[in-house]
Design a protein around this nucleic acid. Sequence first.
RNA 1: UCCCCGAUAGCUCAAUGGUAGAGCAUGCGACUGUUAAUCGCAGGGUUGUAGGUUCGAGCCCUACUCGGGGAGCCA
Length: 433
Amino acid sequence: MHPIVAIENLKQHVGSTVTMRGWLADKSSKGKLHFLKFRDGTGFVQAVVFKGDVGEGFFDEVGRLGQESSLVLHGVVKSDERAPGGVEVSVVGGEILQKVEGFPITPKEHGPDFLLSNRHLWLRSRRQWAILRIRDCVAKAIRDFYEQEGFICVDSPIFTPAACEGTSTLFEVDYFDEEKAYLTQSGQLYAEASAMAFGKVYCFGPTFRAEKSKTRRHLTEFWMLEPEIAYATLDDVMQHAEDLLCFVVKRVLERRRVELATLERDVAKLEAIVPPFPRLSYDDAHALIEKHAPGQHEHGDDFGAPDETIISNQYQKPVMVHRYPHEVKAFYMKRDPHDARKALCVDVLAPEGIGEIIGGSQREEDLDVLRGRIAEHKLPEEAFSWYLDLRRYGSVPHGGFGLGLERTVAWICGIEHVREASAYPRMMYRIYP
RNA sequence: UCCCCGAUAGCUCAAUGGUAGAGCAUGCGACUGUUAAUCGCAGGGUUGUAGGUUCGAGCCCUACUCGGGGAGCCA
């Protein structure tokens, strides 16, 4: 028996004979040689089978294996400069678990419809392997960052009795007798309650938007991180967002080099993600757009996707745009004491066209002002009675933001579409597999 | 909800209104260093659905279905 070694650890076993358990990713043959691209979930390695080393029976059997056949291989680990990972394995034997024919996803090009319909199998391909391992790394980095910063994870509920902001379209579900529940579109309001109990908190989980958005930036189900910090001002929130993004990018650069290389990501662009990030007021951002595309953006309106592109293209780092007109923002955002027309809010726009990855604000903490806002937005006050209690019992300044995980991963990976940043993306016209 | 585009072999695509094609994949064969290997041979089709125009429709027209991109909205 040889030790079972994961492909990602092969470098530590150069010269010894090991066992690998996995799947055949690809194969090419030349005479008495088979070159197997072998994967085990932790990585990919080339395994070379010489007819003279393994005997004719096993050699011929391996030669007939189709893509994604499952097998166990025994072989000698050799460092080899010709190999992409620095090592390859000379096979001395093995066992075939299943011979596969007709695996649908070949190493050639495919269209998005076909790939998404085969998402359960597409996950095995190199690129998806790299993206989802980076997603895992990002999620872990987020939790590590908050542990380091003294935050407590208090998750918000997924079933909610009503809209959080009263704007987005919600998914409705039956909730026992005659009652309706809605899938959450944001954990923020609950996070505010949690922050009053624990000081610094975050929630991190799935959220749902029933809007009929069909773009490369939208999913109907996505993961959102929402920190909420008692006694925080808008400046604190912006500083916190900058710290978080720098921590996450640095971590991915430390631990996911192979995956970034697989995606052919320009790591210089990620290495440039260091403090400080540019901070731009809404008015400055408007002026910037006016300079590059006169007349495109009307002052007072929210920024559209083309506007965001112009802004983010001016910088190599995420851009923080703050203090939007309050009319285009949510009811719970505090007004700027220096300019009542503005809200104390911030959007963080990622570089390279992915758009907004963070939206946050300082919250209105005054009971009467907040009740007025609810009335102005024509929202039912009853639905917010528990939320208003937070302003009745020990109200303090506070703030936080929401970070879209898939958009963040898409930006870090340098991929076009957020759907690849989710293992099983849910979109308007797609809920299979 | 609105705008644009698409649907032909397992996949990606081609085909002036006139016999439905290629590359890749698959199967068989050759080759001891491949990296999207190469070379030879072979199999593979109700052109998304329904109707219409026409001597004749993959192609033109109408409707529908499914999908893609974008707007709005947002992360």
